[in-house]
């Protein structure tokens, strides 16, 4: 029995010949239905490449990605993506942005049902007062909420989040983390969250999987997070297990990070130069 979402030996690189850079190498991952997975990693380790692969925006060079046993073939509305930079269409209102997605996924819905459906998801992310506003009139946090509502309104099988909160300030991030937790608890979607924030991963996910630093990044040892749901940020912060998990993961990441810097370390020798007196006139050759 195959897992709900499965990545088998997925590799991806860019460029060719001497300039080829292997970004991801031999990624193996299986995710059960309704599971919340967080993938944490360093900047530039290929996190966005990984999510783009699952979303189908790019194709793997090797290996395959299966959703419910079916090989994925290009992007599709069964995998809702929440992009790091919100990716809202600036000429459409909050309602319009979500409507575009809903119309595409549920073409047979009657206009009244559609409006109700959209309103429900806008309500879920607490944006009802801003329903007719344009993205340019919203703050970063509100924009990301629209993006979350859009992805949820498509009722996807899997929700892919590419560092959804990294562009926000710490306070807004905390609020939105709790909202994501609440929404997940209500909807029980399968979620893959990409993040560079270990705390965020522990707070939200069932499993935290570190991505080793690139080039040729792959998934490291996974950490199961056993806090009961629904989770509460304050309670978890106070939990001694949280500190332990957090330290474990950070130590692990540091270790593989150092591994990288040692392996990667070309020695740079400074040239032996003496400063010249600036006032001395140089002979014209």
């Amino acid at each position: 029995m195959a897992a709900f979402l499965e990545l088998r030996n997925v590799s991806k690189g860019y460029g060719s010949g001497e300039n080829r850079v292997e970004v991801l190498k031999n990624i193996n991952l299986s995710i059960e239905e309704g599971e919340f997975i967080a993938i944490v990693g360093f900047t530039g380790s290929g996190k966005t490449t990984l999510i783009s692969l699952i979303a189908g925006l790019i194709e793997p060079d090797e290996g395959e990605i299966l959703l419910k046993g079916q090989k994925i073939n290009g992007p599709g509305p069964d995998r809702g993506v929440i992009f790091q930079n919100y990716s809202l269409l600036p000429w459409l209102s909050v309602f319009g942005n979500i409507e575009l997605a809903v119309k595409q996924v549920f073409p047979n819905m009657s206009p009244v049902d559609r409006a109700d459906h959209i309103a429900k998801y806008i309500e879920m992310v607490n944006l009802t007062p801003a329903i007719q506003k344009k993205p340019s009139e919203l703050s970063g946090g509100m924009r990301q909420r629209v993006s979350v509502a859009r992805a949820l309104a498509m009722d996807p099988e899997v929700l892919l989040m590419d560092e959804p909160l990294s562009a926000l300030d710490a306070l807004t991030r905390g609020t939105l983390q709790m909202e994501i937790e609440k929404i997940w608890y209500e909807s029980r979607k399968t979620v893959v969250l990409i993040t560079n924030d270990v705390d965020e991963g522990i707070l939200l996910a069932d499993r935290v999987i570190p991505l080793t630093p690139g080039p040729g990044a792959t998934l490291g040892t996974e950490y199961k997070i056993g806090f009961s749901r629904p989770r509460d940020k304050a309670a978890i912060n106070a939990d001694p297990n949280f500190k332990k998990e957090r330290n474990d993961i950070i130590n692990y990441l540091d270790e593989i990070g150092q591994h990288r810097s040692v392996n990667n370390g070309e020695e740079y020798v400074l040239p032996d130069l003496q400063p010249k007196y600036l006032s001395t006139k140089l002979p014209l050759i």
Partner: peptide
Amino acid sequence: KDYLNVSKVLRLGVFSNVFKV
């Protein structure tokens, strides 16, 4: 490219892709 990604993820048809995005 962000807008095109939205269009790709939604699998908009040629017509909607041109006129809506």
